[in-house]
Amino acid sequence: MPAILEVQDLRVSYTAGREVLKGINFTVDADDFLAIIGPSGSGKSTLIRCVNRLVEPSGGQILFEGRDLLKLGESKMRAERRNIGMIFQEFNLIERLSVIDNVLTGRLGYTGTWRSLFRAFSKDDIRNAVRLLDRVGLIEHLDKRADQLSGGQRQRVGIARALIQNPKMLLVDEPTSSLDPKIAREVMTLIREIAREFNVPVLCNIHDVDLALEFCSRVIGLQEGTKRFDGPPSEIDKHVLADIYSMEVL
């Protein structure tokens, strides 16, 4: 499988002189479900947010299908963002908009500014939004306001919003940390299913190591901005975890 994403020597510092990511290298293949694990503050979110440049890296390369995203100007980068769907820990829905309007915001990158001012999304987009909401099990809630949904339902809207972009990759930042364990498993299962259905690789931050091991095909371990592990879940044992989380083996 060819790599869809290739990250080389990625460096980020929010404040001068203090690097949060200290030269990260990894690749995401077209059929990967790649988990990033690591202690709080190790730079997992920062890493994911660099890929679509919500965070501006200070050095390195991010090759997406061979194109270096860090070299793109603003409008070219916007066009690339359409290829990269993102799912958030806090769902980040627009609470006062309806469920279907939230999903349709995923099409803004494809919709002209004038049309979007009047929320005049194309018929295809609307059909697609309905189909996706049906797929994630929210067909009865189309017209509800997003703030009337439960956490698990909101995350499903977030998933549909990412999918309607027709993405070539999904970025997922702690999709389950705001959910209870049962709903968390359901959401992870859904993400794995849609990744297969839509044939998109996933790059996913997870707090919960057990979830990571269960759902992911590969794991990257971060600690204080450096990569400490990169391999399949089967290679993860006590010693690897002890190294990533720099704790004593019990």
Binding site: N52, L54, S75, R78, A79, E80, R81, R82, I84, G85, M86, F88, E90, F91, N92, L93, I94, E95, L97, T105, G106, R107, L108, G109, Y110, T111, T113, S116, L117, G158, R161, Q165, L171
Partner: peptide, 20 residues
Amino acid sequence: GPVEAVRASGANKLQVFVFA
């Protein structure tokens, strides 16, 4: 958060303002 989500979908600045 919602601002970032809309930005991440490839929306331009006016669209981000109007939708998020």
